[in-house]
Amino acid sequence: MSDTTAEAGRRPRPALAHHFDDLAQQKDAATLGMWVFLATEVLFFGGLFAAYSVYRGWYPEAFGAASHSLDITLGAVNTAVLITSSLTMALAVHAAETGERRLLVLFLVATMALGAVFLGIKAVEYAAKFAEHHVPGPSFHFEEEALSRNAQIFFSLYFVMTGLHALHMVIGLGIMTWMLVWAWNGTITKEYASPIEISGLYWHFVDIVWIFLFPLLYLIGRHA
């Protein structure tokens, strides 16, 4: 604890960009910027959710049947993994704000590890879908012939939605790597924790998207 603060004290104060009056204004601007960006992201996924809702309304049977073919255990494990990563992210933000550098590094590594586990499980699921010929296109095959036509729509949306979500996870891992470097070399300090806070906002957002994707893709029609 003491050595962290001492070390932070030796380093130069974080650079205030020339066009801001003070650090508070700079932090305010950066935080607002991330919130505006997340508004963009909401609409980005919103378009997909709109398409999903329309088609599910039209083809409930096919969507239910196609959803059944997903591995709910892997999906549930992945949900747990992501929620845990949100927790470690929140702890990382706290560590940054209190200036505990070693804890910050630890929690960032934990967050990244959980993110990587998520992507790994996702890859296993994708491989299974390829093996089962559930990828839409010429070689598509679905066990329930009568529902096969519309099941393709479900799988198209499944791959686009989870694919774009996974892409966001990959970008998130990139950001976390960058933050890890900054945490390691002491750029992040108690006074200059906003990069971690803002990256955290992004990470939580990507988790929340999954919280919507999981029930919509894995859990529909289970009551039947």
């Binding site: 963009t40 839409p136 296109g137 198209s156 949306l157 791959f159």
Partner: peptide, 25 residues
């Protein structure tokens, strides 16, 4: 710009998915 553009962006993704992978959305 912030609230509209992402919708056309994702729509273009769907068109590309239909064209490249013959997804059929």
């Amino acid at each position: 710009m912030v609230l509209g553009t992402p919708v056309v962006a994702v729509t273009i993704v769907l068109v590309a998915a239909d064209r490249i992978f013959s997804f059929g959305i």
